[in-house]
Structure formats: structure tokens, C-alpha cells
Design a protein around this nucleic acid. Sequence first.
DNA 1: TCCTATGGCTAAAACGTTTTAGGTCAGTGT
DNA 2: ACACTGACCTAAAACGTTTTAGCCATAGGA
Lengths: 336, 336
Amino acid sequence: MKRVSLKDIAKLVGASPSTVSFILNGKASQMRISDELKNKVLATAKKMGYQPNQVAVSLRTGQTKILGLLVEDISNNFFASLAKTIEEEAEEFGYKVVYSSTENNSKKGVELLRMLTQRQVDGYLITPTVGMEEDIEMLARHKKPLVLMDRYFPGIEAPYVQVDNKGAVEKGMEHLVEKGYKKIAFITIESPMIQMRQREEAYLDAIAKSSAQKKKLILKVNYSGGRETAIEQITDFLKKQQPDAVFFATNYLGILGLESIRAISLSIPKDLAVVCFDDNDIFRLHLPGITVLQQPVEAIARTAIHILMQQLGNSKVPVKKNQVQLAANLIVRQST
Amino acid sequence: MKRVSLKDIAKLVGASPSTVSFILNGKASQMRISDELKNKVLATAKKMGYQPNQVAVSLRTGQTKILGLLVEDISNNFFASLAKTIEEEAEEFGYKVVYSSTENNSKKGVELLRMLTQRQVDGYLITPTVGMEEDIEMLARHKKPLVLMDRYFPGIEAPYVQVDNKGAVEKGMEHLVEKGYKKIAFITIESPMIQMRQREEAYLDAIAKSSAQKKKLILKVNYSGGRETAIEQITDFLKKQQPDAVFFATNYLGILGLESIRAISLSIPKDLAVVCFDDNDIFRLHLPGITVLQQPVEAIARTAIHILMQQLGNSKVPVKKNQVQLAANLIVRQST
DNA sequence: TCCTATGGCTAAAACGTTTTAGGTCAGTGT
DNA sequence: ACACTGACCTAAAACGTTTTAGCCATAGGA
């Protein structure tokens, strides 16, 4: 039982493939095809269960209607939510999404990018990683439809959408200072990527501005050794520095942090206040609830797609800006 | 700056496209192409940055090297983890993955399935939903490479991989009974899908076998009204029935459950023991930790891909069985 | 000298569409 | 009788590959 092709239909009704193509693409009247033939074709197409071969269409039209999505880790809540909304939005415009996790591995990221190019995706949605700078620049130079998310490369002129990292950390730090914490630590990872730089910078600014706290307390967790060693680093740091509040720079650090805090039996918020970047069921359900800076994930995804669609010429309303920062939302819970 | 095609290279080196194709596909010696020409072609291909147009290759060969993955909700931890491993495994075999969330909406699921067919995916990985029975049967009848995951349709002869639901619930119930709980409730959703039927059945069996508990206590949450009303249903049920232990049939029910339990200020495990299907960071980090039946997510994904690859003729070692149930893992924490 | 084998390559069809540039025929006006 | 118009339809090229079936030299053997 082979698939029915457009030619098969043509043969069946005794018309040419061109005519059938016009009819099936709704150009019948434009091409002045008689209603009689039109209906006949439509009827047989339906009866035979005709489905156009999208691969052939793509080859001919040069459009695949596929977007490539590269995220750091699809199983991380933040990226999964991002992916979900992106897929939903893309569907609205008739696009499908191919996704891949880069695992923050530059080599893999670059390979995936190449693969997407081979697959002729119409546009790229990327959370870039360290080694991808050159390839991204290539894409930008070749004017490929492209949006970066969550981070970007300062040297490269490409559209991006991210949360306002500085504003977010600022908001969080202000909240902690207001609550009277005087020894606020910042736990982050060693990363040259802009979003982490922005978060750290905002912490340093907040300390510089503060009258109550003079000393910065930063831990850069080395995650390469796995969960266990990461938790060790955090517990060591907490034991040694004894902060009265700690700000985790990402959701997975927050989770590791909570495990670490539990491991050394500190009580939140009595011994230690906690604020974390990114919301997550875990932080909401934790006892006590963890104060977070919630990223506007859906808005980020939506904005990204709209910027991309504009580049693809699919948008009704032109987007004004294509380098966007969206405000985070401080959700105060019992941890502070 | 246009993409370089195989023809371009052919013209440049003064050979025919066929020859270039043979060389680039490593069939040079087989086709007795001289080393001289071979090296020249390889060099120019590299210099020009040639990347084969995968769309054209697909049209010609009939293989897209793309798998279609349909899950219920990609932002749910279980499905996201599944997706991640599937993608990793698929990559090993040179396949990419297109994913979509069905949202448990049969109409959407069916549409997505059609779309995947149009896109000529080489194989399907599906967590089917209620309305998809006919379409799945179609695929199976047309001998399309296909694996169902997490659930299946008893009437349809198609490969599937799922956790051993009955065994898992049985294990969980035994654990609760051993611990001396005598009024164990089971909170599930109203769903005709097999995996939920199996879980419920196992609960009923356990009660039937039990000497301590005669009465079944089942709540079927109606999730259509959103989070709030779902929590209301659970709190009402808990207040009215006053069970001493509760078994949540899915991870999102577990999360809703924890919120409900908190809302009515019950203490775990003093007032109420909790067991949940599916593990998750939340259950591990919750205070107290929640006892769970962890699904072997990676194994499920891996098995599914292997079964699919076998159908696609890519597997070294033939898979023996293509309807597989994998055992769950009881992780006892402080909630019981 | 002719025949055959072999080495080195290529022509052309095919995959399933879309689209450009017509083609044919009947009727109308002059 | 002839050109023109309009209605209806189609031929053929093109997208970028892969693959089958062979072509053309040259060398070696009879």
C-alpha cells in the first residue's frame, strides 16, 4: 500500500500534475480551473487520503517550515517550559520544532548547529554555549533567521531575548537588604556566558551600594565533578563563611543548595535565608517556600518566536526591538 | 553567498555530479575513481564548506533520518527526561527527533500524527492518548516503524515499552501494609488509558488481598477545572475519608497532593503517609522526603529506541521482545 | 589485427512537488 | 475570413541528490 502522490491523482482524474497542484493549493480560481474538475480532484484526493510529501515541497520551495531549537538541557525545568511554549507558538505559525540539548558542550552544540543547517531549518532558536560564538556569527552574517535566548554574545549583532538579569538580582538583593540580612552570599558557577556575568555583576553592585555589608561572598561552584562534589563545595562554603542569606544564581544551584543546607542541618530561614533565580515547583512546595526571581518564561518564548517570525516575514505586526530584556518577578516566600 | 551544492563542486573540479557524489559518499574506490580526482574533490568540498542538502537526500533516498516523538506534555518532568534520553539514544544511530506535546488532547494528537507523516519521519515514538487508537492502528497496519511508550492499546498489536505498573503499585502497597497502614487511599485520575487502569487494578487487588483493610478508598480527580479545583477535590476527599496513607498515581497528582496536604495542615507522615508514582527532584527534596516508585525512565527510552531501530533495520543485536514491561524501583523516604 | 578486459568516469532518470510560460479551442466582433 | 479574447488546461524545468547502466580509452592476449 504505497502513498498516493499528486501524480497518482492526476492520472486517476485524467488531468496534469500541474492542474492538480493548483487545485490542491487553492489556486483553482486564480488559474481558472473549472469547478467540475476542481471538485473531482478534491474528491479523489480525499478518497485516496492524499497527503503532500512535505520533503518534496521543501525541496521545491526551499522552505521546510521547521525551526531548530537548541537548548542547554531539555530535562531542566526552565528549558522544558521554554521548549513547550516555543512549540505551541511555532505551531500557530505552521512551524514544527526540532530540538536538541547541547549539554553545554560546545563541540556538541556546534555539531548540532551544522546538522540543523543540513536539515535546512528555516530558523534557529538557540541558547548559545561557550564555543558557539563563531558559528553563531556565521549564521548572523549570512542573515539566517535567528534568535538567541537566555544569553547572547556581546560582540555579535544578533537578536536575543532574555530576562533582565541585572534588574532581577538587584530586586532580589534589595529584598534581602530590606529584610535586614547583612552577610549575603552569592553562589554561582564559573561561566563566561553573559547571563551569569550579568547576575554576578548585579550582586557586586548591590554589595558596593550597601552600607551594611562590605565584603562580597561569592562561591563559584565547579560542576564538572557531578552532584556530590558540587554539594560538598557548597556545604564547605556555607560552613566556613557562615552567611545569613544566600542567593543562588540558577535553579539547579538552588536545588543543590537546598540539599547542601539540609546536609548540614541549617534551618531556613532561621539560620539562613535563601533566594533563588528561576521558579520551579520545588521552590513553591519546599518547606519553607523559597523566595525566587521568576523568569517570564512564556513571554520569553513568545517574544523569541515573534522576532523570528518577523525575520521569516510571517508577522502581521512588525516587532520594534529585536534585542529584548524582560523583567523578572520577585516572589517572596517564607525563606526570607 | 549561496550554499554550495554538489553540482557546484562538480563544475569547479571539472567532473560530473555523479562522480562527486560517489567520492563524497566514500564510494570512490568501489567506483574506481582515481586517487587524484578523489583528493581534489575532497579538498574543494572542504574548502567551500560543502554541506549536503539533507532535504534532497531525503527525497531521493526516502529516508529522513528523523523520528517523531509525541508525548503528553514535554514540560512534565517524566516526559522531559524521557525525551532527553530518547534524543541522546537516537543521535547514536544518526537520527534526529521532532517532538510535540499532545496535551492529552486527542484532536491535537491526531493532527500531529498526520503532520509527522507528511514530514516523512522514519519512525514514531508515541505516548498515545485516548482518541489516537484508530490512527495508531493505521500506522501499525501499514507496518510503519513504531513504538508506544508508557501506555498502549490492548486491542492493537504494536510494540510498546512501559513500566510494570501493576508490579509497581503492588510493591508500594506491600510497603504501606508492612508499615502497618490500615486505611490506604488511592488518588488517581479518570482515564481509560491502560497505564491508569493497571495502577488502579493493582490497588484494588492489594486491598482485596489485605486482611487489615476491607474498604477501597479511591478518588478520581477531575483535572479539567485546573489546579485549584483539583486541590479542592483532594482536600475534600482527605478531610472526609481521613485515610492514614495515600498513594498518588502520577507525579503531578503527587505534587497537587502535597499542596493539598499542606493546605489542610496535615503532617507527613504523622497524620498521613504518602507514596507517589514517579520520582522527581521535588519528592527527593521535600521535607519529609516522599517515598516513590521510580520509573526506569532511561531504560524505557533506551528500550524504545532499540525496538524502533530494530524495525528500521539498524540494530546489531536483534531485540527479542517488543512488548516490554520494566520494573519500577521503590525508594523509601521519610513519608512512610 | 581484432577482441576483450579493465580502469576511470558520466548521462540520465528518479524522488514529488511548484511554477512559468505558454497552448488550444470556442466564441465574438469586424 | 480573420484576428482577438477568454476560459481552461498543460509541458517542462527546477529544487539537489543518488544510483543504474553504460561509455570510452588503453593495454594485453590471441
